[in-house]
Amino acid sequence: MRITAVQGDITEQDLDAVVNAAKSTLLGGGGVDGAIHRRGGPEILDACKQLRAGDYPDGLPTGQAVATTAGKLPARWVIHTVGPTYTASEDRSELLASCFSESLKVAGTLGARTIAFPAISTGSYCYPVEEAARIAVRAVHDTPTEVDVVRFVLFDGHSRDAFADAVRHYG
């Protein structure tokens, strides 16, 4: 598996799947979640509403992952996962790692060979970027998968540098 970290816009990635740092409601929000819903169009929201009406009436649990259409995005699928909110008083690293491993498992069931991840939980959920990068890259590295290309797509240079450092360390 080839793992890279780049600075860019995850909604522009022409890969099999992009991962959405979703809210548990699956109905959109700010940050990556809002950008994916806006650029992908109403097809993504409609698919999320169907998930809420079916298997996830109470929302998607933290650390789990589920796929929908990518709507108007260049990708084929969006894999939605809910990251944990950071707190210094409780270790939630396993929940964050689960976001990445479960997303890779969903990608495998779809037959996806290429996937893009954002920096899950590092925005409004306040996970320290360097710690999140180490957890994310280690989880990807340690998860058995048929995915060939994993691209971390980071919004800013600081995040890209943190993820690039983690890739060098674990890659």
Rank of each mutant, 00 (worst) to 15 (best):
D14E: 14
A35W: 14
I79E: 05
H158W: 06
T69G: 12
A107P: 06
G8N: 10
E43C: 06
L26A: 05
G54Y: 08
I44W: 08
V106D: 08
V153G: 03
G28W: 10
D14V: 03
R52K: 15
G157C: 03
I120T: 06
R76A: 14
D156K: 02
Q13P: 07
D9R: 11
A133Y: 04
G31Y: 12
A21K: 07
P128G: 08
L104M: 05
H141A: 08
N20D: 15
A22T: 00
G157W: 11
S89V: 07
A70L: 10
Q7S: 09
L15G: 00
E94T: 11
C126G: 00
A5K: 02
D14K: 13
G30A: 13
P57R: 12
R134C: 03
K105D: 14
V129F: 05
D58F: 09
G54L: 13
E130A: 15
Y86H: 09
S24Y: 08
P84V: 00
E90L: 04
K72M: 12
T62S: 07
L27C: 02
E12F: 05
R168W: 00
D148Q: 01
A5F: 11
A119E: 13
I79Y: 10
D161Y: 03
G71S: 09
A75S: 15
G34V: 04
Q7W: 11
T145M: 06
M1H: 11
G8M: 08
E90I: 01
H158S: 10
T11F: 11
I44L: 03
P42S: 15
R151W: 08
A70C: 09
R92Q: 12
E102Y: 00
D142H: 01
L45D: 10
T11I: 04
G8E: 13
V150Q: 05
D46Q: 13
D55W: 00
Q64S: 11
P42L: 09
C48R: 02
H80T: 04
A5R: 07
E94W: 04
L110I: 07
T62D: 08
L104S: 09
L60Y: 13
